[in-house]
């Protein structure tokens, strides 16, 4: 399987152009297989749920998980990313339409949103909520053991996010930052209402590299987004995921599923 696209350069040599687009099927396929396997195993793994200590009454009280501003950020970011995926991959897969303008507008929007998010996360949110710590691995181990039928005596509970969520966040963050850096550079190479294209800011080889990085990050984001949306709509996680819509989780779920020493929302 060829990983890259090449062309013959002015000098008659191979010149790197980008990723081989057949790989889209491999990235998409791998994500699809992951989803199918996970969905098929769930019913069996779920049988031996860890015992949970529920020390809050089921009284309808709630705990704020995502503030409105963070939900708005998530959804605006998600719309940008889905637009970027749609506008770039659909034409490659032969569904032709005018894609470039919509793509760069979504790309610039995403970039602004992410800059905003990083500033907010650094100064106004709890940065430790997303940082991976040894405790996350202990929780992940305990959860895996429990799923395989060996529930612990005293269950370990995670902070605000479990290891997989953190891993997903940082992978997506790295990929999106990669797409931003390469995408904004590519933006300078096309005509926009603000400037005329300048292809000379980089040499041919460097451009090849920029496109290749953009292409591979794009296909990875496609795969991760498929998996993320699957996890987001799984019914057994709805108690938590509804919070990206309403902002809240039930107070009883907070106590049942989270380590109160590691995640203390404002309203608890």
């Amino acid at each position: 399987m060829e990983l890259f696209r090449y062309a013959m350069s002015v000098y008659g040599q191979d010149q790197l152009l980008g990723a081989n687009w057949d790989l889209i099927w491999w990235f998409g396929g791998a994500a699809a297989i992951y989803i199918v396997v996970d969905a098929a195993c769930r019913p069996f793994l779920g049988k031996n749920k860890r015992k949970t200590l529920v020390n809050a009454p089921n009284d309808g009280a709630t705990v704020r998980r995502h503030h409105l501003i963070d939900r708005l950020y998530h959804w605006a970011m998600a719309i940008s990313v889905l637009t970027l995926i749609g506008t770039s991959f659909a034409p490659i897969l032969d569904w032709k339409f005018e894609w470039v303008t919509a793509h760069w507008i979504a790309g610039v929007s995403l970039s602004l949103l992410v800059v905003y998010h990083i500033i907010r996360a650094a100064f106004w949110q709890d940065i430790w909520a997303m940082i991976v710590t040894p405790a996350d691995f202990r929780v992940a181990f305990a959860t895996a053991r429990a799923a395989l039928g060996r529930p612990d005596e005293a269950p370990l509970k995670p902070g605000k996010y479990v290891l997989l969520q953190k891993a997903y966040h940082w992978m997506i963050a790295a990929l999106v930052l990669g797409l931003m850096v390469t995408g904004l550079t590519m933006w300078l190479k096309i005509d926009t209402p603000f400037w005329n294209r300048n292809p000379y800011i980089l040499g041919d080889d460097m451009w090849g590299l920029v496109y290749t990085v953009h292409d591979f990050c794009a296909m990875s984001v496609l795969a991760l987004t498929m998996i993320h949306v699957y996890f987001a709509i799984r019914p057994d996680k709805w108690w938590q995921n509804r919070s990206m819509f309403s902002g809240d989780i039930a107070r009883k779920d907070y106590f049942a599923h989270h380590d109160v020493t590691r995640w203390a929302p404002d309203d608890v």
């Binding site: 062309a7 013959m8 350069s9 002015v10 010149q15 152009l17 190479k189 294209r197 451009w207 496109y211």
Partner: peptide, 13 residues
Amino acid sequence: YGLPCYRAGGNTC
């Protein structure tokens, strides 16, 4: 001329 331009599947004009 066979240069790797956009129309030939490349990344530039």
